[in-house]
Amino acid sequence: MALSIHGIPNMCVNFVPPTRQQIKEYFSTELAIEHDAWPAETWQDYAAPLIAAGENARRALMGSYGMIPKRRLPEGVRYSTMNARSETLGETRSFRQPWLRGQLCLVPMTGFFEPNYESGRPVRWRIGMESGEPFAVAGLIRAWREADEGVSYSFTQITINADDHPLMRRFHKPDDEKRSLVIVPPGEYDAWLACKDPELARSFLRPFPAALMTAQAAPIAASGPQTASLF
């Protein structure tokens, strides 16, 4: 999704990933690295941790935010794949095959950002859990074969309509459709990751209780996001 003229994202294109210790503590897995090798905030094409299904347990991987990394696009083409609309997952070219093949993942975070217009101008707000704990949203993962025969990963977040959600309907322009990331309850993590039936997977794509969430203004730093890709 594109930025508005005010520099505020029109949909969730920015979130705060967890620390390495939080990944281990809250998601029962850990990355094979010795430190937090990712930025404090994630933007398009930034590297960030994600959770995928393994043979016997969850596995933590690093992935590039956006289903199709910009470096994989033809020269001159600009196309954002950071968010996948639930209504068109089986139709959109960028997401159809990963969705039908059950390439599901969890995107762990401690908060994500949306624009709030209640003051008459766009203000970035941070949304997270009332408990303050990390959480995970539903996503799709894709593997890419690199020139050196290695494998890299990319991911997208799935969104649903939020016109009637008590909290998420407060974001985006007044006349725009309201959208929300799909927050997956911890008790459903493994069922989501293991699901290979697209129709059954849709049963996970539902609103998260607003009473368990919190939101507050979090204006973007004057310098804006860093633009260098780390993946």
Rank of each mutant, 00 (worst) to 15 (best):
Q22W: 08
T159D: 01
F15G: 04
T42L: 09
G63P: 01
M82S: 13
G187T: 11
R170C: 08
A222E: 15
T29G: 02
W144C: 01
R179E: 05
V77C: 06
T81E: 08
H35N: 11
Y117F: 15
R145V: 02
P209F: 01
R93E: 14
A37T: 08
F135T: 05
A57K: 14
W144V: 01
E188V: 09
L31V: 03
T42A: 10
Y189I: 09
L89G: 01
V16R: 11
H35D: 08
L50Y: 12
S203F: 03
Q157Y: 05
L140W: 07
G66R: 06
T42I: 15
E130L: 14
S203G: 06
H172A: 02
D45K: 06
R170V: 01
A138I: 05
T227C: 09
P115L: 04
A222L: 14
M11G: 01
G132D: 04
A215E: 01
I5R: 14
I8K: 10
S86V: 10
R72N: 12
S28L: 08
G54A: 07
Y65T: 04
G128N: 08
A52Q: 13
L61W: 09
P39S: 07
P39R: 11
L140G: 03
R20H: 13
P122R: 02
P219E: 02
Q226R: 13
K178E: 03
R206L: 10
G224K: 01
L200H: 09
E75G: 07
A40Y: 07
T29P: 01
E133L: 14
I5G: 14
K70R: 13
G128R: 04
